[in-house]
Design a protein around this nucleic acid. Structure first.
Lengths: 203, 203
DNA sequence: GGGTCTATATATAATTA
DNA sequence: TTAATTATATATAGACC
């Protein structure tokens, strides 16, 4: 259990390199998260790592896809132009998501209808009266990540002023027109932190 | 000099929050760099921070701009299409850079011409004989960073196969056609590590 | 504001389970 | 392979310039 002072050089041994990566990456993510909480800094770290499983990558891509679709849905009032730029895959995914959300809404309405009247519409002092209802996950979207040839785009629309938003919509439109195949990631892994805390709102 | 165990919550005091950010960001960058060296992991960290000076940001933008222009220059054989997509600002910057590089080349040639013949073209055992010449900084470009409305694109062209490179050129062309105003960054700061070490080559 | 110092908190290399 | 353990290296909070 003696610990040597690590010499700063590429670790040639495969297994110990991977072990070191796992440990240090975990530590790094923790530090990122701490910086985000302590100082209100939104941040992202991207690792081009061969050590992460594909399933995890696919989950990220799926999440990103869902976030993108949610975003389009919620910016619908601004996004008439965008809709015309959607390709078949986009529209299909959007439909799936809308179905899911609609189903949630119906369930929630059903559950709500069964509740005694005095809990409806009241500013209930705690969330206890609503706790059994299906959760509403339709929060404002937090970020879009697009992975391409070792490239990532991140957009934060939470605190975008109308002008910037419009500009972003225009860019999204261009994206959809020119790169219809933006929905599947590259061959590397990415991590993300931050975005859940915004110094302008949260503190 | 007693150190309290830090409680994980937003630091309300402005100056100590900034101080903490400075220290922890430095530590984080060091850790990123170490992970890059130890495990051969290319990585990037992006901080949406209000604590970085604008001059530093502008320097990054300038560096990115120069990198982009260098890249276009070096991919010239592939970039006939790109050139047609360049706007006035692009071409102006490219001209400036070409002038600078040309001047370096001329200086270097002059210096070279003054050297005794036996040092010319020889595989000199050390760099001492060349040490006084103006440095040639025309290395292959490492990355393009484009900053927009809280968005960053990073491309690594060092180890791009010809197909991918062609694809990237096409994308760059589209970028130039549709977003002629991509040369100035947003209002936040970004950091970058990695890219200088490639596990496929370096180790 | 930024730099230095030092005690202490935290991360982690090596090892074992 | 992933999970603890533990001794030690490293990061950093608070104090002082």
């Amino acid at each position: 259990m003696i610990r040597k002072k690590v010499k700063l050089a590429y670790i040639t041994n495969d297994s110990s390199r991977k072990a070191t990566y796992k440990k240090r990456n975990k530590g790094l993510m923790k530090k990122m998260s701490e910086l985000n909480i302590l100082c209100g800094i939104d941040n992202v770290a991207i690792m081009y790592s061969p050590y992460e499983s594909q399933t995890k990558l696919k989950k990220h891509c799926k999440d990103n896809r869902e976030t993108k679709m949610t975003q389009v849905m919620f910016n619908n009032i601004y996004s008439k132009w965008v809709v015309h730029g959607l390709n078949f895959g986009d529209i299909n995914d959007l439909n799936l998501l809308l179905d899911e959300k609609m189903s949630n809404i119906v369930k929630r309405m059903d559950a709500f209808a069964m509740k005694p009247l005095y809990t409806q519409g009241a500013l209930s002092s705690s969330s206890s009266s609503m706790v059994a209802l299906p959760p509403m996950t339709m929060v404002m979207p937090k970020a879009i990540l697009r992975t391409g040839t070792k490239g990532i785009v991140q957009l934060d629309v939470n605190n975008m002023d109308p002008m910037k938003r419009q500009q972003w919509i225009m860019e999204l439109m261009n994206n959809n027109n020119n790169n219809p195949q933006t929905h599947v990631g590259g061959d590397e892994m990415m991590f993300q932190f931050g975005d859940n805390i915004n110094p302008n709102n949260g503190h």
